[in-house]
Amino acid sequence: MEKFTKLTSIVAPLDRANVDTDQIIPKQFLKRIERTGFGEFAFFDWRYLEDGVPNPDFILNEERYVGANILVGGRNFGSGSSREHAPWALREMGFQSIIATSFADIFRSNCMQNGMLPVILSESEVDTVMARSLRGYGYKVTIDLESQTVTDDQGLNASFDVDPFRKNSLLEGLDDVGITMGLSEEIDLFEEKRTARW
């Protein structure tokens, strides 16, 4: 897994609550058997018009957000389907971190399995980031995982919680399977005493 340590980037705003994983990557694109190739289809129904040209009314198509690696969204971001294709698509679209007031559980976990950092800030902090990115051109924040802070050059200084285990995995770029394989003796022992049913 790729490391996530510190990221300074333009912020792209998506001011909608309950953005679900069906919107992030619609079902017709879930048929691939690879982890790649999803980025161009992210937000497909919102992002493109019927003839496949970019929808000028969709905010992430605006030139000022090109190259953004941070997305700020509404509450309950990533709700719905467990498809990991959603973080794969967002990552390929360029996003390494998403800021919101809340995330759906499975989506949040899926992000962290892919070197992406979901950042939960308070409503007023998210409102600030949202407003500044909507208003300005080239508005940037810095997300520092080590110090667990989000800052900008207009006085924002927000801190966020992250599970210490997940934090370490992201900082070091460790994947879970490798760590758990180190506990195979414990798993063997558990299986010895485990009964077929409860």
Partner: peptide
């Protein structure tokens, strides 16, 4: 669970 966790469960 997501696909990375599917992998985790398959392996462990």
């Amino acid at each position: 669970i997501g696909t990375s966790e599917v992998e985790h469960v398959l392996a462990t």
